[in-house]
Design a protein around this nucleic acid. Structure first.
Length: 859
RNA sequence: GGGCGAUUAGCUCAGUUGGUCAGAGCGCUCGCCUCACACGCGAGAGGUCACUGGUUCAAGUCCAGUAUCGCCCACCA
């Protein structure tokens, strides 16, 4: 550490101010390497944090400032406790958000069929969504890469201003070669062990983005719909069965009807067949326990595929497939087997919406539609980032096992959740519920462009068809690879796409497939095993509660497979930021108030104070009032420190002899104990609260009581005790506040101490010098008396400097006895000429004050 | 339909294992330019601790139920 001599003020300023502190100390920390990670330390000396990599392709929200501050509080505390803190910063720049940002920013879209244009220049000023210029995949990826790099700079500026004590020397990006290589290597090992596999299956599909979507990325939205009651004629001619559906356009995809096995209305029909209206396909009537007798008519049509229940029925009842939906969300051109082709031709190529209108019209015409559709509102599944309902399309995708289809694995992963220390503890329940509710393995492939490519190729047989069951994988040493431009081992580029040659996998990994490896990326797994062994398993995973099911769970899964251990020992879960009206702060609202504007208005320390005032896991209101209080606290620290130091205060607990001073240190010792215990329990709010409460008592009562004495009114020895107490307390307080208010504490520390307060040691009870015999309650007792003297002046509406002719303190003899030890300081602070003590029966301590008045004294 | 969390002064929130816990700050009222701070200081007023039962000598504090709010999950016929 440097001495910081270059950065401190020349002397204590006459008018201390917060202005300029952020710029000055950030420069100092950067130049001195205050937060640089020393990788020579042993694992037990290190505190490692698996920082959330943030998506920079947007704008920082106050919610991010909130939760990242929580992490920094822990980092700073642990650093002061003597741990070497591994606190990297990452950017989660791969994936759809970056793609969308590039599309909107430049007005382009990716068309993988186009060749790379090395002379391509990004269009200026962006374009409208309608007029997007198609560009090659490689050109598109290059734009993603450069634009996210720009966005990351803007984010870094905010984080630095917030004083996140990360080591900025090597931030990682989830799209860079390092992350890509690790992500691909981890995947190949999953593949080799059988944790990962490729399968063709019905998949939730976003027709806008034309990609598969995982269970974790779904959300329900209420949408208007309508029940259509449709009659199916029985094949034996004995009449019709009516079903109700909200998706009449899927009628050509119908493969069966299903009712509950106990439903007496339909029991006689099980095993018989019916014909679909219009399309004339013969389908069986079957039974399955998932059919709900009380829904609709109690019998449902099974289509391939209208919803996830259809998939379950299709699988469990071994039904055929009649796929009619394409990846673009339109009905396929060809009628499925068994469906009347002429009728189907009327809807082929139509969107879901148009096909529905057409089919309903035909049904009405044919008389199969019974009554009119009855409108309802029902939940529909959406991709969380999409705005059109998801469809289910059969596609070939990569999966990683997650326990959904393996009870032993599921139980093992739930045990991992139990093994982890959750802060707050109830967050574990969310994890358990998610794991217990999994219905399918983790779908990790996406039909997108800006992501980590799957490092596999497929041999092409003599007929020109890829053999997906025999993927070709690269050597680990060759990673990262891009199978769309790199050749698999044993082939050359001329064989790409040819019979007897190879084809590269065209998919990219879901962003979680890479961000689930942040512990490995941060620790440079397999590239720097020495570093990895010093940081893994990490001490802390901080994150938001909304991504327990994604980031937290997926990281546990990957670590469980690769290391057979948890990736970290603690998880700290931050809550939401709410609008002042208690609603979850919307993205748009949150963007209105930018973090930088808050820093400018209140100061970074003040914004941190607001964030630190909220406990982990608890939602907090966006409250500028709290920031004002933080700012006030920071300013008070400047002024009180300046004042205390003006006496020549210096830390020396051993030189404290006066009972009042010992009382102060006794309380301080207790504050240190509580704040330390609170931080150890990931309760930063409590640590702040005890320090703050003590600080105000220190300012308002203690300093007022001893300032005369510190000036020397009672001689050198009495003054020395006060100066030592002031110095000891100030030193401890600055360090207690350092994690919360890094700028102002560093400033004050620089006035009289060497080095950075952020590398100073966390205060201990030992250094405060616990005086067991000390009367710790004395300061409070004196404060009570002083308050009464002030009250008398206040109600007389006179200045606090008004002389008191006589003050008579009445109360229990024992209290008076104790007060005698601070009588001189009390008289000085209250400007009391004559201070008397009279024992009284009452348990209350009262002070009768006679003010010095020229005319007549008042009681 | 299931689950988790919250409900304490006008506002934002503390209240650790049941017994000075009815608190803090903001806001409000009334004062004070006290030689660190007017970005300050002092003194006040404000609450049947959501509701209903129960356990206990004693309950914001434990149990059961109810209500309201928030979030998560659920097979969308």
């Amino acid at each position: 550490m440097g001495t910081f001599l270059d950065w401190r003020a020349v002397s204590i300023p006459d008018k201390p101010t917060l202005d300029g502190l952020e710029e000055r100390w950030n420069a100092a920390w950067d130049a001195e390497g205050t937060y640089r990670f020393d990788r020579t330390k042993a694992r037990e000396e290190i505190y490692s944090i698996d920082t959330p990599p943030i998506t920079a392709s947007g704008s920082l929200h106050v919610g991010h400032v909130f939760s990242y501050t929580h992490t920094d509080l822990v980092a700073r505390y642990q650093r002061m406790r003597g741990r070497e803190v591994f606190y990297p910063m990452g950017w989660d720049d791969n994936g759809l958000p970056s793609e969308r940002r590039v599309q909107n920013y430049y007005g382009v879209r990716c068309d993988p069929s186009l060749p790379y244009d090395p002379d391509f220049v990004a269009p200026e000023g962006g374009g409208t969504a309608k007029e997007q210029t198609p560009i090659s995949r490689r050109n598109f990826v290059e734009l993603c890469d450069s634009l996210t790099a720009e966005d990351e700079k803007a984010y870094e500026a905010v984080w630095r201003r917030l004083a996140l004590s990360v080591d900025w020397s090597k931030p990682y990006r989830t799209i860079d070669d390092h992350s890509t290589a690790i992500s691909q290597k981890a995947f190949l090992r999953n593949l080799a062990r059988g944790d990962a596999y490729k399968a063709e299956a019905p998949t939730l599909w976003d027709i806008t983005f034309r990609t598969a979507v995982a269970q974790a990325e779904l959300e329900d939205r209420d949408r208007p719909g309508a029940y259509h009651r449709i009659g199916f004629q029985r094949t034996d001619g004995s009449g019709a069965i009516s079903i109700e559906t909200t998706r009449p356009e899927l009628l050509p995809a119908c493969v069966a009807l299903v009712a509950h096995p106990d439903d007496e209305r339909y029991q006689p029909l099980f095993g018989t067949t019916v014909r679909t209206p219009l399309f004339d396909a013969e389908v069986p009537v079957l039974s399955h326990y998932l059919a709900a007798p009380d829904k609709g008519s109690g019998i449902a049509m099974i289509c391939t595929f209208g919803d996830l229940t259809d998939v379950v029925w299709w699988r469990e009842l071994n039904l055929p497939t009649r796929a009619i939906l394409g990846e673009d969300g339109r009905l396929l051109p060809e009628a499925p087997a068994g469906v009347d082709a002429a009728t189907y031709a009327r809807v082929a190529g139509k969107t879901v919406h148009s096909a529905r209108e057409e089919i309903v019209g035909m049904l009405r015409e044919s008389g199969a539609l019974e009554g009119e559709p009855s409108p309802i509102t029902h939940p529909v599944k959406f991709y969380e980032k999409g705005d059109r309902p998801l469809e289910i399309v059969t596609t070939r995708q990569w999966y990683i096992r997650n326990g959904a289809r393996d009870e032993d694995l599921r139980a093992a992963l739930i045990r991992r959740g139990e093994e982890l220390s959750w802060h707050p503890p109830h967050m574990q329940v969310r994890y358990e519920h998610w794991v217990n509710g999994l219905t399918g393995d983790w779908l990790i492939s996406r039909q997108r462009f800006f992501g980590v490519p799957f490092p596999v190729w497929y041999p092409i047989d003599d007929d020109g068809a890829p053999d997906y069951d025999r993927p070709i994988v690269p050597e680990e040493a060759a990673l990262p690879v891009d199978p769309s431009s790199d050749c698999p081992p044993g082939y050359d580029e001329s064989q790409r796409g040819k019979p007897g040659g190879f084809a590269g996998d065209t998919d990219v990994m879901d962003t979680w497939a890479t961000s689930s490896l942040t512990p490995q990326i941060g620790g440079a797994w397999t590239f720097d095993d020495d570093l990895m062994s010093r940081v893994f398993p990490y001490d802390l995973r901080p994150q938001g509660q909304d991504i327990i099911r994604t980031w937290l769970f997926s990281t546990v899964v990957r670590s469980h497979f690769e290391f057979d251990s948890l990736p970290w020992t603690n998880a700290a879960i931050s809550g939401w930021i709410l609008d002042p009206d208690r609603k979850k702060m919307s993205k748009s609202k949150g963007d209105v108030v930018t973090p930088m504007a808050l820093f400018d208005e209140f100061g970074s320390d003040a914004v941190r104070y607001w964030a630190a005032s909220a406990r982990l896991g608890t939602d907090a209101a966006f409250d500028t009032g709290q920031m004002k209080i933080g700012r006030r606290l920071a300013i008070k620290l400047l002024n009180a420190s300046k004042f205390a130091l003006s006496f020549g205060a210096a830390p020396d607990a051993g030189a404290v002899t006066d009972p009042l001073d010992l009382s102060l240190l006794g309380r301080l010792s207790e504050v240190v104990r509580e704040a330390t215990a609170a931080f150890d329990g990931y309760n930063h709010t409590r640590a702040l609260e005890v320090a703050e409460t003590f600080f105000w008592t220190f300012c308002d009562d203690y300093i007022e009581l001893v300032k005369e004495r510190a000036y020397g009114s009672r001689g050198d020895e009495a003054a020395a005790s006060a100066k030592a107490a002031l110095g000891t307390t100030l030193s401890v307080l600055l360090r207690l506040f350092a994690p919360f208010l890094p700028f102002v504490t560093e400033e004050v520390w620089s006035w009289w101490q060497e080095g950075s307060v952020h590398r100073a040691s966390w205060p201990t009870q030992g250094e405060v010098g616990v005086a067991t015999a000390a009367d710790r309650g004395l300061l409070g007792l004196v404060g009570t008396a002083l308050s009464q003297v002030r009250g008398a002046k206040s109600s007389a509406q006179v200045s606090m400097k008004t002389e008191v002719a006589q003050a008579v303190v009445r109360g229990p003899a024992a209290d008076l006895e104790r007060l005698q030890h601070a009588a001189t300081d009390l008289a000085a602070a209250g400007r009391i000429a004559e201070l008397r003590f009279e024992p009284a029966e009452s348990g209350e301590l009262t002070v009768a004050v006679t003010l010095q008045e020229p005319d007549e004294p008042q009681a």
